[in-house]
């Protein structure tokens, strides 16, 4: 099998399958209650420039350079341990790096003068293990940062939270605690929590890899919706079906390096590197 011309089985379920798995989801209004705030500069939303990172002697990222422009959906894939999760966590400075530069909407994140909490509040992030706060109800999970960081009133934050919950089909669960929801539901709440901050860009760190297979679809549906509404997104994922459907570009990483950074059609049509070809053939076989 050469350059993966075989049609892969799309992990994104057909619409009726998704509806069966999560009847509450359904086609929703728009996820973005308002347009994302206009970016401060006309340059790329995220610019990653020559970033290297070490854990002691072990190099996890080697000279990574790429960028994400406004409205673009970029999927980052690669074998486990390739550094893709580390790279995305560097973007909002959850992980420090030793060399290179990252700017988000024109702000250098490694600059000591940068107000990181303020910057992070404009960058939405969704984690592999959801990371909802287990001691807070769903409503409080959605309101906490709106109130503490953005200074919104309690009513305002709750209204915003409820509106987003409705969009992800979980309004009926607002009073529950995270532990009472399924993994797929928790991840949809986590997406709503990030959106409640009116982010200018969304980062997804393997958002479906901790989910049971039958719940992957409901989360991907929300992400597809978000992409179609024009959200700028950087997504670390193995879901090639999602990439085919909505990505503009695909980045392939291996051993801490960006091996391939190409338009979607080019990446799936004829990946240049052998490593990407091997990876694709492995992941698409199943």
């Amino acid at each position: 099998m050469t350059s993966s011309a075989m049609p892969p089985v799309s992990p994104v379920p057909e619409p009726q399958a998704a509806a069966a798995a999560a009847p509450a989801t359904g086609p929703v209004g728009t996820l973005l209650t308002e347009r994302p705030p206009v970016a401060a500069t006309s340059g790329p939303m995220i610019a990653i420039d020559g970033v290297s990172k070490w854990y002691g002697d072990f190099q996890v990222l080697t000279n990574c350079t790429t960028s994400v422009t406004k409205g673009e959906v970029v999927v980052v894939c690669g074998p486990s341990g390739s550094g893709k999760s580390t790279l995305i966590k560097c973007v909002n400075a959850l992980e420090p790096f030793q060399k290179g530069q990252i700017t988000v909407d024109g702000t250098q994140i490694a600059n000591k003068k940068t107000n990181l909490p303020k910057l992070r509040s404009r960058v939405g992030m969704v984690f592999q293990h959801f990371e909802l706060f287990p001691h807070l109800s769903i409503t409080d999970n959605l309101s906490l940062a709106q109130r503490k960081v953005l200074g919104r009133s309690k009513d305002e934050a709750q209204a915003k939270g409820l509106a987003l919950l409705e969009r992800v089909g979980l309004k009926a669960h607002a009073h529950k605690f995270p532990g009472q929801l399924s993994g797929g539901q928790q991840q949809r709440v986590a997406i709503a929590r990030a959106l409640a901050m009116n982010p200018i860009v969304m980062l997804f760190d393997e958002p479906t890899s901790a989910l049971d297979p039958e719940m992957v679809g409901e989360v991907l549906d929300v992400m597809v919706e978000l992409a179609r509404e024009g959200m700028t997104m950087m997504v670390v994922t193995h879901e090639m079906g999602f990439a085919r459907k909505v990505a503009n570009r695909v980045i392939f990483m291996d051993k801490g390096e960006i091996v391939e950074d190409a338009q979607k059609e080019e990446f799936f049509g004829s990946p240049r590197s052998e490593r990407a070809q091997t990876f694709l053939s492995r992941i698409l076989q199943h």
Binding site: L94, L116, P117, K118, V123, F133, A145, V149
Partner: peptide, 26 residues
Amino acid sequence: PKGQGAAASALGLTYWQSMGSVILPQ
């Protein structure tokens, strides 16, 4: 779990906010 602190930071909470609202209550 470490992710709780990371999630709080990612939402823009400062160290003291993250401690006070997320980590210490748990």
